[in-house]
């Protein structure tokens, strides 16, 4: 991908991925031929970094199949935006449809995968991403509960810790749930982690990061996959 590796190594010995790089890492792992919804936030960035050589059809909750990357500024169309309200394009073969059909696709089990953002993810796959309970920040559920209930798999794309440095991967969500036990894989700015019946398994970590250091930023205990590898940005 273009954009290269983050340079914000500070003095901690490892570099965090950018939001676009998190999206890129998830996009690279999407199986060829999948129909995939991209949720608001980091996930919608994935449309700009889809792997070449695979045919993957991106779904947007506002009635689009075949979402393409963002357009050049001159080609922006106010009638063509994604869940994050960013301008997008339509791929050949794409289609538009009414909201209730967009959610029939979601709720009816027709989507292979949904990529969602998160406030918190628990070790058992519980997802919280719709309210902080703070009245200064109104809640927003959007399509998250429908996607969590209906897509065949849920991957979460998020920063590993909050802006205050608190873990977002927690023993038990303190925030109200979007859905219980639905998350299968977590992509953060530091690692790729699978949610399994035997707990959280780290598949990839950014160069320079150790399991011990990652564990300090993660509440549930982490196991390292036998075949784990460095999360290197191509």
């Amino acid at each position: 991908m273009s954009g290269a590796v983050s340079t914000s190594t500070e003095d901690v010995g490892f570099a965090k991925l950018s939001r676009l790089q998190i999206a890129w890492r998830a996009a690279e792992m999407i199986p060829d031929g999948s129909f995939v919804n991209l949720g608001i936030g980091i996930p919608t960035l994935a449309a700009n970094v889809m792997p070449e050589g695979k045919e993957i059809v991106l779904h947007s909750e506002n009635g689009i199949l075949g979402v393409g990357p963002g357009p050049a500024e001159a080609d922006r169309d106010r009638d063509l935006i994604n869940a994050s309200k960013d301008y997008v394009t339509l791929q050949p073969g794409g289609s538009f449809f009414v909201h209730s059909d967009a959610f029939a696709m979601i709720r009816g089990g027709h989507l292979d995968l949904a990529l969602l953002g998160a406030f918190q993810v628990a070790g058992n796959g519980d997802l919280a991403n719709w309210t902080t309970g703070d009245r200064r920040f109104p809640p927003g559920v959007g399509g998250a509960m429908d996607l969590a209930a209906g897509a065949k798999a849920i991957w979460v794309l998020t920063d590993h810790v909050t802006k205050k440095g608190e873990p977002k991967i927690v023993e038990k969500c303190s925030l109200p749930l979007t859905a219980p036990g639905v998350v299968k894989r977590i992509f953060t700015d530091l690692a790729v982690i699978d949610v399994t019946g035997n707990g959280l398994v780290v598949r990839e970590m950014v160069p320079g990061l150790t399991l011990e250091r990652l564990q300090e930023m993660t509440e549930p205990s982490l196991a390292l996959a036998d075949d784990w590898k460095e999360l290197s940005v191509a």
Partner: peptide, 28 residues
């Protein structure tokens, strides 16, 4: 939830008195 919102409208327009959805189960 957005899918429930659009389906509740469709139900109203289609003369359906209600529907059961998996969306939101186990949540506030």
């Amino acid at each position: 939830p957005q899918g429930t919102l659009s389906e509740r409208m469709r139900a109203a327009g289609a003369g359906v008195a209600g529907f059961y959805t998996p969306t939101g189960v186990g949540t506030d």
